[in-house]
Nucleic acid binder design. Structure first.
Lengths: 206, 206
DNA sequence: GTCTATAGAACGATAGAC
DNA sequence: GTCTATCGTTCTATAGAC
């Protein structure tokens, strides 16, 4: 049980506070205080507050991408024509798994991702993010194959719907507490049901 | 064509900047500059930056609530047992209508709502919001009646899914531009298809 | 109702001792 | 790698003239 190093403590504290208050709302002072580190530590370890943010985001996003990618590999190794529900499970499942660390860490990540999704400019834009684009493109192709009647635009709309439902999960609409009677395991299953039906809907008629 | 008064110009500018940069990222200076008003104008007209935010949010949310409420009234006046697709249309439709002012005003409101959804504490919490709670409860009852097999918790999960899909609409995942080939009219119809199928899914088995 | 001017606090970043 | 000290900037809020 070696104690976490300062760098990790800073990442933890920053993940918490960026999710809770946003980038501008979380000061370096608040982050270093929560991390039990010195004010100058952010500059030393990450260079700037903005670079700390990208490090935090990468740490949250990378395992999700890896799990999504591995899930698709596994699916395609078994059959060239996966079911819609299998694709939904492989794509949306990791979003819930990674955000379901029992404690409030899941809701925190969920909020962080929502903030990034909704942020058009914030110091977020320089973030590389080629990995998740690749993963998304691969799922786009797989869904297009499973749902050949759907136009590319409507398919894209639906995939963004998956992201939306997953991102908003565990973020309460009106206050900080999760809705009553929610366990993340149940939410995960509800989401698969909800999203499989949604993805499988026939194309919208003109 | 009377020119808008300072108060309205401040609300417009604040709506823009809060959506674009978040509450902490939008300074009073930036807001008053964009509004063509004086730095002291926010204090005079709204008392504080936080109260300006609640005024902005109320102005965005109120017409949506009113349209949702009127839509449900109209539906229930016609039949005591509306279809799921009609309920989805009445609930989700106004979210798209109010956010579809052709120009980028829609995306702006969409982003603002996303920020509020994802914000557990921000100066948002004191906001009264009894109206939208009432509307949501009425739809909850109507959906429960149309989908009697669904548990209250799973139904609640699904209604939040509607909000998620609507809120994320027109917010691009990775940069400020809307996805290719999107018109808000098409997005509205795609969403009704997507969400009707999702709401109509059978309950998740245990 | 609009302006100038400023108080008072918090901010990000960094230089330099240890 | 960690600390103190501080620079220069920006922030919200408000007092008071017009």
């Amino acid at each position: 049980m070696t104690p976490p190093d300062t760098r990790t403590q800073l990442l933890d504290a920053a993940e918490h506070l960026f999710a809770e208050r946003g980038f501008h709302g979380a000061s370096i002072r608040a982050i270093t205080d929560l991390a039990g580190a010195n004010l100058a530590a952010v500059g030393y370890h990450f260079g700037s507050k903005a670079q700390l943010l990208t490090a935090v985001v990468l740490r949250v996003v990378e395992p999700i991408n890896a799990a999504q990618s591995a899930g698709l590999d596994k699916l395609l190794a078994r059959t060239p024509d996966p079911e819609v529900t299998e694709l939904v499970e492989a794509f949306a499942g990791p979003l819930f798994d990674e955000m379901a660390t029992a404690d409030e860490g899941g809701a925190r990540k969920s909020r962080l991702i929502m903030r990034i999704l909704g942020d058009p400019a914030e110091e977020m834009r320089e973030w590389p993010g080629p990995a998740e684009d690749t993963v998304r493109d691969r799922y786009l192709a797989a869904f297009a194959h499973a749902l050949p009647a759907l136009s590319a635009n409507e398919l894209w709309f639906r995939i963004r719907g998956i992201l939306a439902v997953a991102a908003v999960d565990r973020v309460d609409v009106h206050n900080g507490q999760p809705p009553p009677g929610r366990s993340s395991a149940a939410a995960r299953r509800w989401a698969i049901t909800f999203l499989t039906a949604a993805m499988s809907a026939p194309p919208t008629g003109t």
